[in-house]
């Protein structure tokens, strides 16, 4: 049962991913991105990180993917071009991606066994969401990254407004 669910979500994530990078039509590619992100969210659920799964859906699908689709629509004249979505060096790109994947497989299999049996991991504490929240606000843990993340968001917001705002015609 778990395996079936794992395979389902993996297929969603990977097929979605392949569609993202091959679809010529950008809105479709973005929809495929949503599919892929949803698959990844499913994997989080399997990994018992429910909070992250919800945040994944909320932030990635609810905000980033919609933002991307919106930007595609705003710049839509280029969406309907006839040319291929890939550039001229796509062959090399494919080769390097495949080689990279092969290398990763080698490295991963050397470090973490593939075998099915005898897999065990400590149980996730019941209040892991709470633990996450506390870790983010703990002076002995991650309060600094948490605060810096807010600085990052603020500067990104200011920056995006400055860059994208239309010319003043007061």
């Amino acid at each position: 049962m778990t395996y079936a669910v794992f395979i389902l979500f993996t297929l969603m994530a990977l097929c979605g991913g392949v569609l993202v990078v091959t679809q010529r039509n950008l809105v479709r590619a973005a929809t495929a991105l949503v599919l892929s992100l949803f698959g990844v969210a499913g994997l989080y659920v399997l990994l018992e990180a429910g909070f992250l799964a919800a945040v994944q859906v909320l932030v990635y699908i609810g905000a980033i993917a919609i933002l991307i689709i919106f930007a595609i629509m705003l710049t839509r004249r280029m969406v309907q071009g006839d040319e291929s979505g890939l550039n001229r060096q796509w062959g090399w790109a494919l080769v390097s991606a495949v080689v990279m994947f092969a290398l990763f497989c080698y490295v991963v299999v050397k470090a973490w066994p593939l075998a099915l049996g005898a897999v065990s991991a400590p149980a996730v504490p019941a209040d892991s969401t709470e633990a996450l929240g506390l870790a983010l606000l703990d002076w002995e843990q991650y309060v600094l990254p948490f605060e810096i993340a807010s600085v990052l968001l603020l500067s990104a917001m200011v920056g995006a407004v400055v860059i994208a705002r239309e010319k003043h015609d007061s």
């Binding site: 949503v34 909070f51 919800a54 945040v55 859906v57 909320l58 699908i61 609810g62």
Partner: peptide, 15 residues
């Protein structure tokens, strides 16, 4: 995470 789930799922509607 029910409340968060609600917000997350709603975003599909927008999509």
């Amino acid at each position: 995470i029910g409340a968060l789930y609600f917000v997350a799922v709603s975003s599909f509607g927008t999509l």
